[in-house]
């Protein structure tokens, strides 16, 4: 066999291997939808997504409480992680002297490498207890505890992507601003951060995906009660009516109440669910929601990242 033929052979064999990732993704989609479809023959998709009552014994499958709690915990995590993560990224990219950078980088890698179950264990023993004692609540297993743990877990991804995009801001932008007499902080605020913004945004989106999909830490600290808080019922207009301001005033209350995330529901209810039954199918439908959310977020952030790299160069 001459070498051209051999090369073509190797190339086609490698091609087969390289589509495995796409194949697995396709299989995940097929299997998730295949199991979830049975639910949608009984319950309409909109009733499933926006229904507020989840009670498999009575045949009620409303996923909205889970979606709501996942979003609340994620928003809370973002409020903590964005300022902290972006300023740490600025520190690493712009301010840190060499030794401080060398000391911080492995810390962030390690933070990313700690298994989620250990975050959960730590959260349950330290943060949940701390919240319970310091705020004098009946239970410390709250949305707030989930947000704090999720914040720690998404910090590494926000930091590393923000740092990359801050570092990819052309040096000339910065020098030009400094030459005009601007201080470091002015340069950072008016020149560097705005230029790096798309990349930072992409990192945040990836962090949102991570937080929504996180399972083990959330299931341990969130308390797992899918009873919808009053404020959500009002938001949905099912009970009574109230002004927008009243609703906004009540939002902080939810932070101090237990909740149950999408991921937790799948994990906790798979045991009791009967294989092939409607409940089992409904849990796969929750998986479909999760998959769609994270898929869209991932595609969006990669699109932003690829666009911003081109524009920076």
């Amino acid at each position: 066999m001459n070498h051209q033929k051999r090369e073509d052979l190797v190339k086609s064999v490698l091609f087969v291997f390289s589509i495995t990732a796409s194949l697995i993704l396709l299989l995940i989609i097929i299997f998730l939808f295949n199991e979830a479809i049975r639910l949608f023959q009984e319950v309409s998709f909109l009733d499933f997504l926006f229904g507020t009552k989840w009670n498999p014994e009575q045949g009620l499958y409303g996923a909205f409480p889970f979606v709501f709690f996942s979003i609340m915990a994620t928003l809370g995590a973002l409020i903590i992680a964005i300022p902290l993560g972006v300023s740490c990224a600025v520190f690493l990219a712009e301010i840190a002297p060499g030794w401080a950078r060398d000391a911080t980088r492995p810390v962030i890698e390690l933070l990313a490498g700690i298994p989620s179950i250990i975050y959960g264990l730590f959260g349950l023993v330290i943060i949940v207890r701390f919240i319970k004692v310091s705020l004098e609540l009946a239970t410390g297993e709250t949305i707030l505890a989930g947000s704090i743990i999720l914040a720690a877990m998404i910090l590494p991804i926000i930091i590393s992507i923000s740092q990359d995009s801050i570092e990819s801001v052309p040096k000339s932008f910065k020098l030009g601003s400094l030459a005009m007499g601007a201080t470091n902080w002015q340069t950072l605020r008016k020149i560097i951060l705005p230029t790096a913004l798309p990349g930072i945004f992409a990192g945040i989106i990836l962090g949102v995906g991570r937080a929504m999909g996180e399972t083990m830490a959330v299931v341990l600290v969130l308390g797992n009660s899918e009873n919808m808080p009053e404020v959500v019922k009002q938001l949905l207009g099912k009970e009574g009516s109230s002004t927008v301001m009243q609703l906004i005033n009540q939002v902080p209350e939810i932070l101090f109440k237990p909740g149950e995330a999408l991921t937790s529901a799948i994990l906790l209810e798979m045991g009791p669910a009967q294989v092939g039954g409607l409940h089992y199918s409904a849990l796969f439908a929750l998986g479909v929601i999760l998959f769609c959310i994270t898929f869209v977020l991932s595609v969006a952030s990669n699109y932003i990242l690829s666009r911003s790299q081109i524009s920076v160069r």
């Binding site: 299997f31 199991e35 799948i266 796969f284 998959f291 898929f295 990669n302």
Partner: peptide, 22 residues
């Protein structure tokens, strides 16, 4: 292929659990 790899990376771990189960 690249989009698949990135998307696979973003799939939540519990969804892999569901997939493996099924």
């Amino acid at each position: 292929i690249r989009i698949s790899v990135d998307s696979l990376n973003a799939v939540p771990s519990i969804v892999f659990g569901l997939f493996g189960l099924s």
